[in-house]
């Protein structure tokens, strides 16, 4: 088996919280606290979880929009988490991003032409003005926008069209991995379906790997190969789509899935309702981070942190229940 396109090993990102001019000791937000996963070429891995669980921070760490606290980010066998700005530039081209908000993700003062040309020029992907022009035309075709869109500014487009421009900008760098940070969450249902389909077509056409960060499980089920479920800065379950959606193992995954609305008013539902709120990432609970809300928590959960363990068939779960014999569950 060849090396995976992206490997993330024990990634940690802690943000300091300073309040006040004279406060010496900062407290820390443990936004991401030991996350490991791999993304193969051409694969879609979805990161799901509720707001504030650190899934976007993982995406931004992979893009190296900031320095990570600990761990490794390995792209195609090469560590990129400690690269200098100069060394990083050549790697940057291979990972691009599509953001959630189609309004703030495009510079309002630039024409679409300049927005798309920026990565092409930065990475020297066009050797002549004519080649640049041809690439721009091809890009705008790829995302199914009319050619005169190039000479317009972002405010002249609708949300769905802007998101297409955002995708075109990501494609302009000819990447191998695109981080889709809630890329369809801000769109209408109908537009959402179009963008999801566009992403899937592009994935097939260019063999792209996608890291699909989302809280929308319906969309995730539609387009992903594997799913990683995050809770409070940790991955609690990582498995192929089929296992996650049919045989979830972690209690949090089960609760998350039971909260997905079903478009059938008569359907029998037995939702698993979690009590309480997500604890603060500044003071995460000791032991298993989910134990404060887990209906199955027992003594060990409160003292010892469960590791992500394989339960066979490519499914990984971080839960002490898995270590118990079947009869005790």
């Amino acid at each position: 088996m060849s090396t995976p396109l992206l490997q993330v090993n024990d990634l940690k990102k802690h943000f300091p919280v300073r309040d006040g001019l004279f406060k010496r000791k900062p407290s820390w937000v443990y936004a991401v606290d030991g996350v490991s996963f791999e993304v193969a070429r051409g694969e879609t891995l979805s990161l799901v979880g509720e707001s504030g669980c650190g899934k976007s921070t993982v995406g931004r760490a992979i893009l190296r929009l900031f320095d990570i606290t600990a761990g490794q980010v390995v792209l195609d066998g090469k560590r990129i988490d400690r690269l200098s700005p100069a060394g990083l530039r050549s790697m940057r081209r291979r990972v691009q991003v599509v953001f959630q908000d189609p309004y703030s993700s495009l510079n309002p003062r630039m024409r679409v032409r300049d927005i798309l040309a920026e990565p092409i020029r930065n990475f020297g992907l066009a050797r002549s003005p004519a080649e640049l022009e041809a690439k721009l035309a091809a890009l705008i075709d790829t995302v199914r926008l009319p050619h005169d869109a190039l000479n317009r500014r972002p405010h002249e487009f609708s949300g769905g069209q802007r998101q297409r421009i955002g995708i075109a900008r990501a494609l302009a760098a000819e990447p191998e991995l695109i981080v889709c940070d809630e890329a369809v969450s801000a769109l209408d249902v109908s537009v959402k379906a179009q963008i999801v389909n566009l992403l899937q077509e592009l994935q097939e056409e260019f063999g792209l790997a996608l890291l699909f960060i989302s809280h929308d499980l319906a969309i995730v089920e539609h387009m992903t190969h594997r799913v990683a479920v995050m809770y409070l800065g940790k991955i609690v379950e990582l498995a192929p789509k089929r296992q996650i959606f049919t045989a979830p193992k972690h209690p949090y995954t089960k609760a998350l899935l039971s909260a997905v609305p079903v478009p059938d008013p008569g359907a029998a539902r037995n939702p698993m309702i979690l009590k309480g709120d997500v604890p603060s990432p500044i003071n995460p609970p000791r032991g298993c981070r989910f134990h404060t809300r887990c209906p199955f928590a027992f003594d060990r959960c409160r003292s010892e942190e469960p590791e992500l363990r394989s339960t066979g068939a490519d499914q990984w779960v971080a839960c002490h229940l898995e270590a118990l014999p079947d009869t005790a569950r």
Partner: peptide, 14 residues
């Protein structure tokens, strides 16, 4: 903090 600035950084702008 605007996403378009992050996107520009990701697309290699110095």
């Amino acid at each position: 903090e605007q996403p378009y600035v992050d996107a520009a950084i990701a697309s290699g702008t110095r």
